[in-house]
Amino acid sequence: MKPTQLEIQCSMQILKPVHKVFEAIVNPEQMTNYFISKSSGRMEEGKKLIWNFPEIKADVPVKVDKVIKDEYISYYWENGESTQLVEMSLKPYKDGTTIVTVTEKGMENNEAGIKWLKGNTEGWANFLACLKAWMEYGVHLRKGAFDYRFDKK
């Protein structure tokens, strides 16, 4: 029997302490270096935010659900006609590094859900790679990466 709900999960080790990685995720001034282009505020429990991304020209509503300092962040965001739960867990690892695991849940196992699964799995892998590049090397991988999508042909 196939599952009725689809779920994405990706993990990556970031060679920085948990508290620094946590701050990079909740602080919009840091998030703009690897994930979003703009946010209406800091990720705090119960807060409603608007995010903008460099690859799409749209406001993305975000409702922060739960925040446990240096351990866990969850929020809901809208994906067209539906809303998904995103959970990020941070676990200390060897030598003061951090394992970041991102899980996104809530799409039906149908054609639209499979399309979402493909696109958002790619997106979360990109998120983790960009977070790692920014945290460890100060490299902003997303800068200019999506400009071609807005060029008029």
Rank of each mutant, 00 (worst) to 15 (best):
M1H: 08
M1G: 14
K2F: 14
K2C: 03
T4A: 15
Q5P: 07
Q5V: 11
E7K: 11
E7Q: 14
I8L: 11
I8N: 00
Q9K: 09
C10D: 13
M12G: 12
M12N: 11
Q13G: 08
Q13M: 11
I14W: 11
K16S: 11
V18G: 01
V18A: 14
K20R: 04
K20T: 07
V21I: 05
V21W: 06
V21P: 01
E23I: 07
E23K: 08
A24P: 00
I25V: 13
I25G: 01
Q30W: 04
Q30F: 04
M31S: 13
Y34P: 06
F35D: 04
I36V: 15
S37I: 04
S39W: 05
S39D: 03
S40A: 05
M43K: 06
M43L: 13
E44I: 02
E44M: 04
E44D: 08
E44S: 02
K48C: 10
I50W: 07
I50L: 05
W51H: 12
N52P: 00
N52T: 13
N52M: 12
P54F: 03
E55S: 05
I56W: 07
A58S: 12
A58D: 12
D59I: 00
D59P: 04
V60P: 06
V60Q: 12
P61M: 04
V62L: 08
V62Q: 02
V62C: 07
K66M: 01
V67F: 01
I68W: 05
K69L: 07
D70T: 02
E71L: 10
S74R: 01
Y75H: 04
Y76D: 01
W77L: 00
G80N: 04
S82W: 04
T83H: 00
Q84T: 10
Q84F: 07
Q84S: 15
V86Y: 01
V86W: 01
S89D: 02
L90A: 06
L90P: 06
L90E: 10
L90G: 03
K91H: 09
P92N: 15
Y93W: 09
D95P: 05
D95G: 00
D95A: 02
T97L: 08
T98E: 09
T98F: 13
V102S: 02
T103N: 11
G106V: 08
M107Q: 14
M107N: 12
M107K: 07
E108N: 13
N109S: 12
N110P: 06
A112R: 05
G113V: 03
I114R: 06
I114K: 13
W116A: 06
G119H: 03
N120H: 11
N120T: 03
T121W: 06
E122A: 09
N126M: 09
N126F: 00
N126V: 01
N126H: 06
A129S: 09
K132L: 13
K132A: 14
A133E: 12
W134I: 08
Y137F: 15
Y137N: 10
Y137A: 11
Y137W: 10
Y137Q: 06
L141N: 15
R142D: 15
R142A: 15
K143W: 08
A145E: 14
A145Q: 14
A145N: 13
F146M: 11
F146S: 12
D147S: 15
Y148M: 09
D151R: 09
D151F: 05
